[in-house]
């Protein structure tokens, strides 16, 4: 990709690796701007691809100096997320590294 591909070396996770989205709701204790959907929190997925490095939107939203963060495309099985749906269907979500942990 045009942006970020050169920084892939600094990524903590690699394609194919299982990751868990942190199950936290920091927006309940402070006013925040987050790009991690609620339905994905606590879910286990697999890194599809490292997308590059981008300034942290959680800082940009408040006009603070934004640290670069690694962004991943993470694939999840869809039925476990909602307790319904068709086997084999999936969700592909862009998630920042600081929201992910090893699963």
């Amino acid at each position: 990709m045009s942006l970020g591909a050169r920084e892939v070396g600094s990524a903590r996770f690699s394609a194919g690796q299982a990751v868990r989205v942190k199950d936290s709701k920091p927006e309940q204790v402070a006013r925040l701007h987050l790009r991690t959907p609620h339905y994905a929190r606590g879910r286990i997925g697999r890194v599809e691809r490292v997308l590059g490095t981008f300034p942290n939107p959680e800082d940009i939203a408040f006009n603070r100096p934004a640290e670069p963060r690694v962004l991943y495309h993470v694939l999840f099985d869809q039925p476990p997320v909602w307790g319904e749906g068709q086997q084999g269907d999936t969700l592909l979500i862009e998630l920042f590294e600081h929201w992910l942990e090893e699963a």
Partner: peptide, 12 residues
């Protein structure tokens, strides 16, 4: 055919 929903949550 499987459905893959792509949630455009960030910078792409």
């Amino acid at each position: 055919i499987q459905v893959r929903v792509v949630d455009s949550t960030a910078d792409f």
